[in-house]
Design a protein around this nucleic acid. Sequence first.
DNA 1: CTGAAAGCGCTTACAG
DNA 2: CTGAAAGCGCTTACAG
Lengths: 338, 338
Amino acid sequence: MKPTIKDVAARAGVSIATVSRVMNNRDRVHTATKEKVHRAIEELGFAPSTIARSMVMNETRNIGLLLPFLKNEFWATLAESIEARLWENGYTVTIGMADSRSYAKMKAAVQSMIERKADGIILCSSPADPRELADFTKLVVESAVPAVTFEFDLPGLPSVKSDHIQGSSAAVNHLIRLGHTRIAHIGGPLVSIGRELGYREAHLLQGLPVDENLIRRGEPFFEFGQAAIIDLLEQEAPFTAVFCANDLIALGAVQELQRREFRIPKDISIIGYDNIKAAVLIKPNLTTIAQPVSDMSASLVDTLLKEKNDKPARRLPPKLLFELELIVRETTAAPLMS
Amino acid sequence: MKPTIKDVAARAGVSIATVSRVMNNRDRVHTATKEKVHRAIEELGFAPSTIARSMVMNETRNIGLLLPFLKNEFWATLAESIEARLWENGYTVTIGMADSRSYAKMKAAVQSMIERKADGIILCSSPADPRELADFTKLVVESAVPAVTFEFDLPGLPSVKSDHIQGSSAAVNHLIRLGHTRIAHIGGPLVSIGRELGYREAHLLQGLPVDENLIRRGEPFFEFGQAAIIDLLEQEAPFTAVFCANDLIALGAVQELQRREFRIPKDISIIGYDNIKAAVLIKPNLTTIAQPVSDMSASLVDTLLKEKNDKPARRLPPKLLFELELIVRETTAAPLMS
DNA sequence: CTGAAAGCGCTTACAG
DNA sequence: CTGAAAGCGCTTACAG
């Protein structure tokens, strides 16, 4: 049987209250007593039950982290830095995985975090369906557990987001400044519509018309990048640059273009989005947009902990928007004949 | 205040024992009573405290997962499938991150899992230093928490491992069968020494001498792949193929070779290890060795849960070895003049 | 400085 | 079928 505080008390010849005091460094305790207790703890290999403590303290020092998935560099990196920062603050993290298509799991995962009395929840995934979203909102709001959302909003909760319109706009502006006027866009699913909006904004602000024939939307994967670029190539409308909604799409487009002997960036410029590692594993290195992952994860954690402590204040929840950075590498250049 | 079982009992006009019974579907309860209770739960939005239950049941239904890191496709994928399988079995997972160089964190993370009364621990990371390893072993063994190790061993614990010697041997055999006789090896850190052993085994079994000048060891990263291949190229000893300890190294080597106008696989064949996504994002697609990630994660979970339930049996702990698969793609071919 | 006791929110014999 | 009570392993006023 694992030893409990009682065993330690018995062995040290003191009360459990005293053992508790020396463990937590609370109140004044005679040095001699302290030592007796420490010795007893040592000898028994005693580890206090966090769970018993949580019960009376009404605090678990554990945070729930809901993610769409992990086998994607962006989320893995985010999760890793969230864990690190939370750990520094004395918190542990339990993960729950569910993307927007598996609401049953998502709900169960969050419910589990609530029942396990997480001190807070970081939500990086949300249901797509409006009814599910309403149900989800009700669940987390009524639970009254401090929470922060990432990349989406829930009424009453603080959120941390990338300014995708600014980022995409910066990407397209870069192309326009290089002299491109016919810029295609291979977009992702609807959740990433902000990137298309940025693409449009840049055109609008520069007085450049948007050719709807140059826009594609699909899955955020390599294969779609290949398919979409083929599709674009096969139609009449010419273009000299492509702004892709993520790096995998961009990589797919690059590979397909190279297979067809297009020279990048000479014939066609490409910009991706996310700055995944593979962006510098291909030749030419991919120009892309980077999200400030560590700033964002730090902000998620800090916001959550503040939320937890200032709860009674109940100000309007903060909505943090992070700027994205254009990383110019080798896949962008001026168009051939401009 | 969040409602407790008492509030539900009061509202339903029954005892807390009865509420507990209907929540857990234990014993026979009058349908009418049951309904009253359900209604009260519903109206109050009551969520039982898993933590209070854990305390009395002496079971948390939570598993600790220690990982070296997450921002690496292999570990992220493994973590994701472990979470999924554990969830299916009614368990939640708490992660702890620490690689072999940060023993303080590793120890603290595992200690935290023990104190939080995890029902089991999956260890995917271990200290490199022998003294630390002894200390670590003591910690987990004395805690008596069911545990499984991945890719390393701890006395008395079951383990799940890849048969790296077999996998590496398969890779090198493939090259030998193609006709290569001068095969270089760019290895990783000492923990992955099994790959070098497999490289040697294949040579030995095929009666091919190993030229020590053709072996390099270093960090398992892209940059080392570049550096090592340059180093190999600059010395006298010729070679027509390279077996790399992981895909990142292989990608670095490929990129550097291509920059120097070597044709792959015509001039030089390359084999990687891990089968990361980027392996098919480059041209030519990388021939590599794949670990059966989902089989292994399933095995980790199943072994752990069995360990947890059969504890008293105390048979010799199982050591599971998984076979690796050679995935032949485009970076390997017969040498030019053989 | 230290101990006895209450209490955190549940589950489960034990009676009835 | 249902309730009163003990107990899980801690923390923390309250006395002394």
